[in-house]
Simulated assay, not measured.
Amino acid sequence: MNGTKIANARPTASTVVRGDSPGGIQRTRAVTRAFTRGLNPPPHPDVADAILLVVSELATNALRHGGGRYTLELSAGPDTVTVAVSDPNPAVPRARPPDLSTGTGGFGWHMVRRLSREVTITRGRGKTIYASLLR
């Protein structure tokens, strides 16, 4: 019985993408779309959109605030999809009030936390943000 649970807990799919420029975000989104479409069963379209938004926000924040490069790893288990974005800056994200007047941001970290079932951060020479979404 325990062996079955452990086997089911393994990821069923995994993809890694590296980026170091704003142009790479578009490629990262395309890889994420292909990843979610390739899952069997594929996630509901609303879930796939949430995964794409979390990836986009975390990768963009890594470029802007995390040292200008990132590594994205997407993995999926039977019930969840995990987005892991690593960057070279060990500083953790700070939530700030969204700027509604000048449009300078403040929305991304709030969205990531709201859309994800769980968000964890590990730090070392840089950091990795793990966002888990129900599949």
Results as ranks from 00 to 15, higher is better:
M1W: 12
G3C: 04
K5H: 12
K5R: 14
K5D: 12
A7L: 15
A7I: 15
N8S: 13
A9K: 08
A9I: 08
S14L: 13
T15H: 14
V17K: 08
D20H: 15
S21E: 12
G24F: 04
G24V: 07
G24Y: 03
T28S: 09
T28A: 13
R33F: 11
A34I: 09
A34M: 12
T36N: 04
T36C: 13
T36H: 00
R37Y: 05
G38K: 00
L39Q: 02
P41I: 14
P42W: 04
H44G: 13
V47Y: 04
A48D: 05
L52C: 03
L52K: 02
V54L: 11
E57P: 01
E57I: 03
A59T: 13
H65A: 06
H65L: 09
G66C: 01
G68W: 11
T71H: 00
T71K: 07
A76H: 08
A76G: 10
P78S: 00
D79L: 06
T80Y: 14
T82L: 07
A84G: 00
V85A: 01
P90S: 05
V92W: 01
R96M: 13
P98Y: 14
G103N: 08
T104C: 06
T104K: 10
G105E: 09
G108W: 03
W109V: 11
V112T: 09
L115R: 02
S116H: 05
R117V: 07
R117S: 13
R117H: 12
T120K: 06
I121D: 02
R125L: 09
Y130S: 14
L133H: 04
L133V: 10
